[in-house]
Design a protein around this nucleic acid. Structure first.
Length: 207
DNA sequence: TTGTGTTTTATTGCCTCC
DNA sequence: GGAGGCAATAAAACACAA
């Protein structure tokens, strides 16, 4: 708006409404945010304003109300996001710790397998003090070898699965960090929703 | 007092609905 | 096509620090 007529119109007519007028308009807005023509005329008569002014006031009020609502929704979403980000970071650290544990176990079983091979050649008892978790039953050696192989495969599986989960989590985190303000992608939002709605975190690595 | 940021009133142009 | 709503914007009114 930059026309001369508009400027003149503003200079001549623009004034703030009185407290009483505002109060009455606010009250009406509380029950009816889009009043029909008759009500606008009624308010105009009652408050000594033009019906056009009433219409404009309601229009501006709706706009203010909408932007306030958006602002409120944003702050609620942001606090929810911040909360989830904290939870996510804790889970990520937990996952890393578990990965390290799996790798340690894997090394231990590899070591144990190596000793078994020596036993096949030398038929000497194992040093049980070194790795009590994987004690061998000398009366059932074949079964023991099979069990250790199974265990190895399980650890392989655990390790791969944990790595996959960490990878997925990092992808999700990256996509969240890439768009923290103006709305995350649909996938990452669903990811957050699931985390929030589930309320439980252990399902991530509930193998 | 004055410069500056915010709020409020009003206009304009576009869109939708009947 | 006219009425009414909405988004964007202008500009007056207001608040307030320096």
């Amino acid at each position: 708006m930059s026309t001369t007529s508009a400027k003149n119109s503003n200079k001549n007519n623009k004034r703030r409404f009185s407290d009483e007028q505002i109060q009455s308009l606010e009250t009406t807005f509380g029950t009816e945010s889009r009043p029909e023509l008759r009500l606008k005329h009624h308010l105009a008569d009652k408050l000594g304003l033009q019906p056009r002014q009433i219409a404009i006031w309601f229009q501006n009020k709706r706009a203010r109300s909408k932007s306030k609502m958006i602002e409120q929704e944003y702050s609620e979403l942001k606090s929810s996001y911040d909360n989830l980000a904290l939870q996510f970071e804790a889970l990520r650290k937990e996952n890393q710790t578990l990965l390290i544990q799996v790798q340690r176990l894997r090394k231990m079983t590899e070591k144990s397998d190596g000793e078994e091979n020596d036993h096949e050649n030398q038929i000497t008892p194992p040093k049980t003090s070194e790795n009590p978790t994987f004690l061998l039953d000398m009366n059932n050696h074949d079964m023991c070898v099979t069990s250790c192989s199974d265990l190895n495969r399980k650890i392989d599986y655990l390790e791969e699965d944990a790595a996959d989960i960490l990878n997925m989590a990092e992808i999700a985190e990256d996509s969240l960090l890439a768009s923290p303000e103006n709305g995350c992608s649909f996938d990452s939002c669903a990811f957050l929703d699931n985390t929030a709605a589930g309320g439980t975190t252990s399902q991530w690595w509930d193998f």
